[in-house]
Simulated assay, not measured.
Amino acid sequence: MHHESSSERLVPTSRRVALITGAARRIGAAIARRLHADGYDLALHYRSSAQDMQRLATELEAKRPGSTLTLQADLAEFDRLPELVAKTVGRFGRLDALVNNASTFHPTPVGETTPRQWDELFASNARAPFFLAQAAAPHLRATRGAIVNLVDLYAERPLPRHSVYCMAKAALAMMTQSLAIELAPEVRVNAIAPGAILWPEPASTQAGDGDAQRQQAIIARTPLARTGSAEEIADAVAWLLDGASYTTGQVIRVDGGRGLV
């Protein structure tokens, strides 16, 4: 099942258009709210969080009718990737920004990891962002647009019991650098490495990050001595899209200084 909301628009919008993956909740939803407030029309991808997405789209539509398109897809299904871009451009007539936010996260202890786990982690964290970028590139060139990828501190520094996730995020970080060269000069490509922003929900069992003791230990190693907010990540995305006109191929750490410690 994949479906879309909002009526067809017959003429291209004069507003900028962003496609955000994993936009229904948490950091993705914060990015959506921020870009919408900045005047973007939005194509909002989600996989399974249909109720959260409906609430977000309703909230944004109340502020500016006709400004959102919701697109359900499993990013592991290859055909959905060019389709997401095609539906976005079909609906709005242009594409100015791609935000690769969707991510799968779960432990893969060595000795227990399966090919299926490998495929799932690489599909969302590396394969889908690349093929979305490839499909989006001609449209982004036309608008001199930009791509922002959400990577991780653990792309550079291994997280125990999460080898495959770390490897997939490292691939996304290299993709950021490689595509910055491949798509220059028309399209800028950058990434954000969030620090401790939102603790994972219990189902994701992030190597014990979910328990209070480990959370306190992480904050103790963070020079700014607090967790960040999803809105602070969204601010960085907005800057990379609209303010960072001479910045490409960079991974910006938004981590309260944690990567220094």
Rank of each mutant, 00 (worst) to 15 (best):
D242T: 10
A236K: 02
Q72T: 14
S48M: 01
A203I: 12
V151R: 00
T58N: 13
H106Q: 15
P194C: 09
A193P: 01
P223K: 05
A23F: 00
D41S: 07
L172Y: 08
K87V: 14
L69S: 03
S5V: 15
E4V: 15
D235Y: 05
A29K: 02
V11H: 08
L19E: 04
D209I: 14
D38E: 08
S178T: 13
Q215A: 08
L179E: 00
C166R: 02
R26Q: 13
V148K: 00
A30F: 05
D38Y: 00
Q177R: 15
A62V: 06
H36Y: 07
M167E: 11
D211L: 08
I147T: 06
L71I: 15
A43D: 00
L56E: 02
L84K: 04
R9H: 15
L240K: 05
P202I: 06
A23C: 04
R25Y: 03
R157M: 06
N125K: 10
A57E: 11
R116L: 13
L81V: 06
A170W: 03
L10I: 10
R55H: 11
L240T: 07
A102H: 02
A18M: 01
L260Q: 12
L81F: 04
P109H: 10
F78Y: 14
L179C: 00
V89F: 06
A123Q: 04
Q213V: 15
V99T: 06
P160K: 02
D74Q: 07
H45M: 05
A184H: 02
A220I: 08
L150S: 01
C166P: 01
P138Y: 06
A30N: 05
L224I: 12
A207V: 10
L140N: 08
E182I: 02
A238K: 01
K63V: 15
A155L: 01
Y46T: 05
N101M: 05
A126N: 01
Q215N: 08
A30S: 08
A168T: 09
T70H: 04
S229A: 09
P158G: 12
Q206R: 13
V89I: 09
T108H: 01
A136W: 08
P12L: 06
L198V: 15
L98H: 09
R25N: 10
L44N: 01
Q117M: 13
F130W: 07
A203W: 09
H45E: 02
E77T: 11
V11D: 06
A191D: 07
D209A: 14
G39Q: 09
S103R: 02
R226T: 11
Q177V: 12
F92Q: 04
N100A: 10
M174A: 12
R221P: 08
W118C: 07
N125W: 11
S48K: 02
P12I: 07
V148W: 02
L42C: 05
G249V: 05
E182T: 09
R226E: 05
G39P: 00
V85L: 00
L224V: 11
Q250A: 15
Q216Y: 04
A207C: 13
Q206T: 12
L132K: 04
E77C: 10
